[in-house]
Nucleic acid binder design. Sequence first.
DNA 1: CTTATAACCTAGTAGTTCTATAGGTTAATA
DNA 2: TATTAACCTATAGAACTACTAGGTTATAAG
Lengths: 137, 137
Amino acid sequence: MLSKKTKYGIKALSFIAKQPEGKPVQTAEISRTQNISQKFLESILLELRKSGFLGSKKGKGGGYYLIKEPEEIKMTAVIRILEGPIAMVPCVSLNYYEKCRDCVSEETCSVHALMIQVRDSTLKVLGENTLADIAVK
Amino acid sequence: MLSKKTKYGIKALSFIAKQPEGKPVQTAEISRTQNISQKFLESILLELRKSGFLGSKKGKGGGYYLIKEPEEIKMTAVIRILEGPIAMVPCVSLNYYEKCRDCVSEETCSVHALMIQVRDSTLKVLGENTLADIAVK
DNA sequence: CTTATAACCTAGTAGTTCTATAGGTTAATA
DNA sequence: TATTAACCTATAGAACTACTAGGTTATAAG
C-alpha cells in the first residue's frame, strides 16, 4: 500500500506541473484544492525540495516550483524518494537491497523469484510514466 | 512492502507443495527448515486452512497438506488472503475497493490513473504464476 | 486406556510506522 | 516595518507488525 505521504506528494507534484512554467505555488493553495492537511503537506514538499525535485521561494508570491521539466521526472524517482523501495521484498530491491535473514539462498527462494517478476513489471510502468504523463487533466 | 506474514506464508505453501502428494507436513518441520518462528507460523497456516488452501490432520503423523493442486492455486489468491489488496491504493482495488476521502473525482486523479496501470501489471504477473510455478526448486 | 503428538485457540505486548499537529524561526516582498 | 510563506524541530495518538505465552482439543501409537 502507498502511504498517504506518497499519494499527497504525487498529487502535489502533479498540481505544480500544471501551473504556467516556473510560477511558484503556495502550500496553502495545494492544501486547499487537494484536500491535504497543510502542515503535513509542508513537510512533504520540503522533502521534495531537498531531494531535488522542487525549488522554493520565500515571502509573498513565493511557493514551490518544478526544477526540471515534467517530462524528465520519472515516477520511479518520485516514489523511491517518498515511499522508499519499489520492490516488495528488500532482497529484490535494486536501490534498497537487503539480504533476508531467514533465507539460505536467494536462488532457491520461491518468494524471491516471484517478487523479481513483480518488481520488473512495476518498474516498467513507473519508468515509462513521467510527471508529464500523469499531470494531464 | 510484503509483510513477513505473507512472505512466510508463501514459503510455507511452497514447501508443502514440494512434498509427495497429500503427505501432511508439520509446522515444526517448516519452521525449522525455513527459519520461521513456529508460533507465528502456526497462526499463518491456520489462516491458510480457514481460507481453504490447506487441510489439516491432528496427532502424530499429522500436519498440513494442500487441498487443491498447486497448478490451481494462483498467487493472486494467496496474496489477497495473507496481505490484503494487491493494489497500491484502495481506490483502484478490485477486491477491497474504497473511495478516497480527499479526491473529488477519480477520473481526474493523477495517482488513480497511474496506480491502475501498476495494479494491472502486478495482477498479470501474480495471475500467471501458480504455486506450481514458484515451488520448483 | 494412556501417553505423546500436533493442530487449534485466545489473548497480549513490545516495537515500529504512519499521519499528522504544535509552535515556532528565517527570508523575501510590499 | 509588516506581511507573507517557506523552513525547522519536536511530539503524540493511532494503527499495524511480528511475534510470544499459555493453554485446549483431537488423533495415533503403544
